[in-house]
Amino acid sequence: MNYSKQEMMAVATGREICDGDLCIFGVGLSMLAGYFAIAHHAPNARAITEGGIYGSTPVGGLPWGIEDNRISANATCFTGAIDALGFLVASGRCDIGIIGAAQVDKYGNVNTTGFWDKDSREHRSHPRVRLNGSGGANEIGCGCKRVVIMAAHEKKRFAERVDYITTPGYLEGGAARERYHFVGGGPSAIITTLGILRPEPVTKEFMLDSYFSFSSIEEMKQQTGWNLKIFPDAKAVPEPLTRELEILRSIDSTGMLKKK
């Protein structure tokens, strides 16, 4: 294997982006996946960051943040939070958003806020482990037409129920989202370090759609904290092509992701 698991994840996420999409990325792997897609197969996709910086490509390496100099050097527009997350995301204009998850459950609800000892969302004290909180992920989860969630596939992170719903997926499943009239469609995929999960169309429960060549259906089931069901046509994800890897690595020119 001449690529890393993270690179496979980035390529698989990039493949979710279509030409012409209006896209919103976070920092790190999400941004790498996004800029990879634009350079590889979606030249007319338009990238924004929630930092309110539009039309730019990173200069000097992957940015340290969604507002730093590397993402500001060749921007076509500097604006702000209400423009990016309000006018473009909460309004429903954005086609696809890519967010990370520290914990995700079978209905695609995402926790990036914290872990508590008590195994319930009714915890009453401060968290045992404080994570980062929402940032703009909550708006992306409510407003984007499609949302792609990226997460390390480990049993403790793939829970029956998350400790805290930072970003709503399908809530309790089925038509639960409809109560809130979200303009966005909800998560369309969870790209993991092992493969891809997608929601069952009616129950909205996430099921095994495909696995990476270095993984397997068994391993994905083993690393999932709910009884992971499998789509009848589950298959292996095509490995990254040489050109895909070349482009991906040219974007991560400082090797920021490899250092992790």
Partner: peptide, 23 residues
């Protein structure tokens, strides 16, 4: 610094989201 203060209860951290703070 934030993690340490929040995990020990020294600082109470109320969560919002980026758009909601601006709104």
């Amino acid at each position: 610094g934030v993690r340490r203060a929040v995990e020990t209860g020294r600082v109470i951290w109320e969560d919002w989201s980026n758009l909601s703070m601006s709104l």
